[in-house]
Amino acid sequence: MARTARKAYVTLLTNAKYLPGLLLLDHTMKQAGTKYPLVVLTTPSFPSEHLALLESLGMETKRIELLEPKGEMTLIAERFKDTWSKLQAFSLDEYERVVLLDCDMTVFSNIDNLLDDPDILPTSDWIAANHSCICNPLNQDWYEPDCCPANCGYTYSQQQPGAPPLPVSLVSSKRTYGLLNSGLVVLAPSTALYNRIVHYLHTSPTVASMALPDQDLLGEVFTGKWMPISWRYNAIKTLRWVHPELWFSRDGEGGKGLEGRERNKRSGDGVAVLHYIVEKPWMQVLPADSRDAETHRWWWADWRDMIAAWERNDKLSNDIDAVQKLVVQGLQE
């Protein structure tokens, strides 16, 4: 008997520090009107007392063990050591298709088309994802020498009418065009595909030197088999000032650039998923003159909207104090 097709969004949560991010991801997905469930993979390091809250919000939870490579690793940040476990989304073969999301994201518009559109994945052993922005605006020394604006996939997009994603035919034309960002990945889970990924993780000599663990691994495993999608679906917050030609619409009154939900309201082609890389709004209040202060203000506005909704819900109002203790004191100004 053929199984009933199921689809889902999936994210990973390994500790309570990222719980505020997950809660706001869930809230903004519901505000955008998604029809699919959010499945949360939790490891033993995530406190079990929070599971009841996730389930009361309608999330499905699955307990997993950490997935790690064998041998020593050189990581650019300690927080990346848990991210290999995201790859267990590929093992969820009870689902026909999954969109894997990082929990430091918020949703600005409905993205169910990523689960519904049959053309996004050419075959079931492909994935779809966004390009990695390799402009290196902060001049970090772990970037390769060819990482510069001229070689960025988003530079290509912003130079084309309508800012389309880089065509698959050009992905192999530059090394940097083949680099993906794993913050959002569209995939078709299967045991065979998952076993292939784990085998690569445990046997490839390149794993030990991967700067961005799961991201670099997916780029290697799916060389020639990943479909670039629009910048909108994984808009890292730094795109706002690194690639403003993509971020802002110039159709506003008086030529004023539209962005955020206002741009989506007007034209529907703005940020769909905002990715809060590096500093997290709920962990750190940025200086008012920071280039990322504006997007952090958006996170806090959504957080206040979520808390207000909880205050009107008898089942959730009792949890407000507990989750408020997990966010930094003081809003982004």
Rank of each mutant, 00 (worst) to 15 (best):
K86I: 01
E65M: 04
H50R: 15
E55Y: 10
L92M: 12
P20Y: 01
V98P: 00
N136A: 10
T106H: 02
Y36I: 15
G71H: 03
D117Y: 15
N139I: 07
P145T: 10
H50S: 12
T34A: 10
L87C: 07
Q31G: 10
P44V: 00
P47F: 01
T74W: 01
A128D: 01
D112K: 12
L51S: 08
P118N: 10
F46M: 15
L92T: 05
Q140P: 08
D119L: 14
I134G: 00
A32Y: 01
L24R: 06
L115Y: 08
D117M: 15
L121A: 08
L67G: 01
D119F: 13
T42D: 06
V107C: 11
D26M: 02
L114W: 01
L53H: 14
V39F: 09
N113I: 14
E49Y: 11
K30N: 13
S85A: 04
I134E: 00
F90M: 11
L121Y: 12
N130C: 12
F80C: 08
L22G: 01
R97N: 04
D117G: 14
T106Q: 04
L24N: 08
I120P: 03
S45Y: 02
M105I: 03
S109M: 07
A89Y: 00
L57T: 09
D102Y: 03
G21S: 07
F80S: 11
P145K: 15
V98T: 05
E65Y: 03
M73Q: 11
L38P: 05
